[in-house]
């Protein structure tokens, strides 16, 4: 654990709490993309399945449970409790255009199989194990789902950014949410540089997806710094 990773995690937590509190206090989810929140719930669910199989630390377990819980609470508030305030007409990004390609990519490019090896596995011309069956510990499925979650997280904010560009504005509190979410990604990039130098840690899948994700926030960061500081709303 280094300071960049810790502050990154806390920044991520801050973003999630800010969004939950905003919806709860204003009794409204206007301007919030329910689709992005469903995608984030899917991200946490598929990534943290390892809660069931491996223990890393109390911190790790606690944060995972909180992230998952908050993600589902947010989806519940948007689609159930404050459904009447949900602006579905402006939340028109086609989420399947993200989930399907990301799903395909996670099968093709992951830490367990190269595409050719995967082809061999599904054709049962495999070397030492099939994907599922007696004696399987689900590690390959978990690995592919982990990869899926990494790829999906990198693009899950797109429905939210699309919604803002469509309506042409965002409430200040929504921009704070996006700022902390982007800050979390930027801090994780520094964390990976740190870990590469001091621990020799290098996870290409996480790093490439993380860079893509951070780039998606750059335009927003620019607007946030130049506009939000001076006005109540984010004009585009």
């Amino acid at each position: 654990m280094n300071i960049f990773r810790l502050t990154g995690d806390l920044s991520h937590l801050a973003a999630i709490i800010i969004l939950l509190l905003k919806i709860w206090k204003t009794r409204s989810c206007a301007g919030i993309s329910g689709k992005s929140q469903i995608l984030f719930a899917l991200v946490f669910t598929t990534r943290y399945l390892d809660l069931l199989t491996s223990y890393i630390s109390l911190y790790n377990t606690f944060m995972k449970v909180v992230y998952i819980g908050c993600a589902y609470a947010t989806v519940y508030l948007i689609y159930m409790k404050f459904k009447a305030t949900y602006d579905g007409n402006h939340d028109t990004f086609r989420a399947e255009f993200l989930v399907v390609p990301v799903g395909g990519l996670s099968f093709l490019v992951n830490h367990d199989f190269t595409p050719l090896e995967f082809l061999l596995v599904i054709m049962y011309v495999s070397y030492d194990m099939a994907l599922c069956g007696p004696g399987s510990n689900c590690s390959h499925c978990f690995q592919i789902l982990w990869t899926f979650s990494i790829y999906l997280e990198s693009v899950a904010i797109l429905p939210q950014l699309f919604m803002i560009s469509k309506t042409g504005e965002a409430e200040t509190i929504t921009t704070h949410y996006l700022f902390f979410l982007g800050l979390y990604r930027a801090l994780y990039l520094i964390n990976w540089i740190w870990r590469f130098y001091f621990e020799g840690f290098f996870d290409l899948i996480a790093i490439v997806a993380g860079v893509v994700q951070t780039i998606l926030y750059c335009d927003f960061f620019y607007l946030y710094v130049t506009k939000v500081v001076y006005s109540e709303r984010l004009p585009l």
């Binding site: 990773r5 995690d9 991520h12 990534r47 390892d50 199989t53 491996s54 890393i56 630390s57 790790n60 944060m63 995972k64 992230y67 830490h111 367990d112 194990m129 004696g135 399987s136 510990n137 689900c138 590690s139 978990f142 690995q143 982990w146 994780y188 964390n191 996480a206």
Partner: peptide, 10 residues
């Protein structure tokens, strides 16, 4: 190996 990869980051 069937040992699952451990991802320690959130």
């Amino acid at each position: 190996s069937t040992e699952p990869l451990r991802h320690d980051e959130l």
